[in-house]
């Protein structure tokens, strides 16, 4: 038991950082809890009249996006890479700073996602005030597609 706890503490630096408060901005854990949105809540927002719908941006892999993505969402590049952040900036360039923007990735389990943390912080640094991130515990396939939420797939 002691060994397992010790191993867990060594192998879970992000969780450990969570205790100390020193969470890397690259980590999904650096996104404040109130800024997370659950799949069910987002699916309700997607049913709203067009003018009230958020701007939904996928900040992961293009190959994932082309397999399946949230209807109406835009591919904005992987947040873990400089080129991805540049594409993200251009994707929001014409948006008002108070527009509701939802970011999502789902490439990996939440605690391993390298993309949502940097993308979230970049938008906040740019002055966007209403940025939320879709919480996908395992991945986009299991937590969104397999649960029957709306998906756009290639024909």
């Amino acid at each position: 038991m002691v060994f397992v706890l010790l191993a867990a503490f060594v192998l879970a630096p992000q969780a450990r950082a969570q205790f100390s408060g020193a969470v890397s901005p690259a980590s999904a854990y650096s996104i404040p809890q109130p800024q997370l949105i659950q799949p069910d809540a987002l699916s309700r927002l997607l049913r709203a009249p067009a003018a009230a719908r958020p701007l939904v941006l996928q900040v992961g892999s293009r190959i994932f996006f082309s397999q399946a993505h949230i209807p109406g969402s835009i591919y904005a590049g992987p947040g873990s890479q400089p080129a991805g952040l540049q594409l993200l900036e251009s994707s929001v360039a014409s948006s008002p700073k108070d527009r509701l923007i939802i970011l999502y990735c789902g490439c990996c389990p939440w605690n391993r996602c390298p993309n949502v943390g940097p993308a979230y912080h970049r938008l906040r640094d740019l002055g966007f005030t209403h940025v939320k991130v879709l919480y996908l515990a395992s991945n986009f396939g299991d937590d969104w597609v397999a649960k029957g939420y709306p998906v756009e797939e290639p024909q």
Binding site: I63, F64, Q67, G106, C108, S138, N139, G141, D142, V145
Partner: peptide, 9 residues
């Protein structure tokens, strides 16, 4: 990815 059932994670 699609051939293998959708590799979405």
């Amino acid at each position: 990815g699609t051939l293998y059932g959708g590799v979405l994670g």
